[in-house]
Design a protein around this nucleic acid. Structure first.
Lengths: 115, 115
DNA sequence: TATCAACACTGTCAAGTCCGAAGTATAGCA
DNA sequence: TGCTATACTTCGGACTTGACAGTGTTGATA
């Protein structure tokens, strides 16, 4: 940490930290997208996400939703109807994460179209 | 898209998009951390990243750096010395991604300490 | 009466990805 | 001659993912 360029000090403290639980979670397939999609479409059902993504496998989407719910980032509400209905939405206090991630997805998509 | 709560329209366009190349990349182990660590410590060497993370396997770090370099997010400079020296830094125009990701890592770390 | 559709998953197996440990190449130093 | 330093690569096994088929319930349709 001497003659290196450094954006700012707070970043220096956080950036190279070891894998934390949440980042581990976000590093799985479709985790980021799922989070943002739920934030945008909420309340959203399993089938809606499946068709929105188009190419997720049902097992992956299922376990991703399970992971995120278990981690407290999503809420799952099940209604006793036939056919069954399950709705997902962001947990009350996790909306902020989605707000941080959306620009990342925006960036990625913009890059996709320009490069 | 009728009575659903929607944060804003631009988010609705981007959030539930299918997996794009960049997001695919970021969804691999240590990709987000590597990007942010390079942004913070640049120019940074392989060994520095390895010790900074502490628990990455060398093979994973190696392939992650390769992925990010190949995708044009990182620059790799090799010097003909013994022992060898290789330096990584963010590509000129990719600094903005790191700026978007740092808050995500901050959020994750803060959550880690409060929960 | 038999079948089908709708929905939210779960189960299974093959393929891909990741980890930890050991190995590679090179030159200076003891 | 062996040790050190560096930036990787290779290998076998473990874990994750994808494709596809199946589950359970009830109302609608043939």
């Amino acid at each position: 940490m001497d003659e290196r360029t450094q954006p700012n000090d707070s970043a220096a403290e956080t950036c190279y930290c070891p894998t934390s639980g949440v980042i581990d979670l976000l590093s799985r397939t479709y985790a980021i997208q799922t989070l943002c999609a739920v934030g945008t479409l909420q309340p959203v059902r399993y089938g809606e996400l499946e068709t929105a993504f188009g190419d997720v496998s049902s097992s992956t989407l299922s376990s991703r939703l399970g992971d995120l719910t278990e981690a407290g980032l999503l809420e799952r509400n099940q209604y006793d109807e036939i056919p069954p209905r399950v709705e997902y939405r962001l947990s009350e206090d996790r909306t902020d994460l989605c707000e941080l991630l959306t620009p990342v997805l925006d960036w990625a998509q913009q890059r996709e179209t320009t490069d």
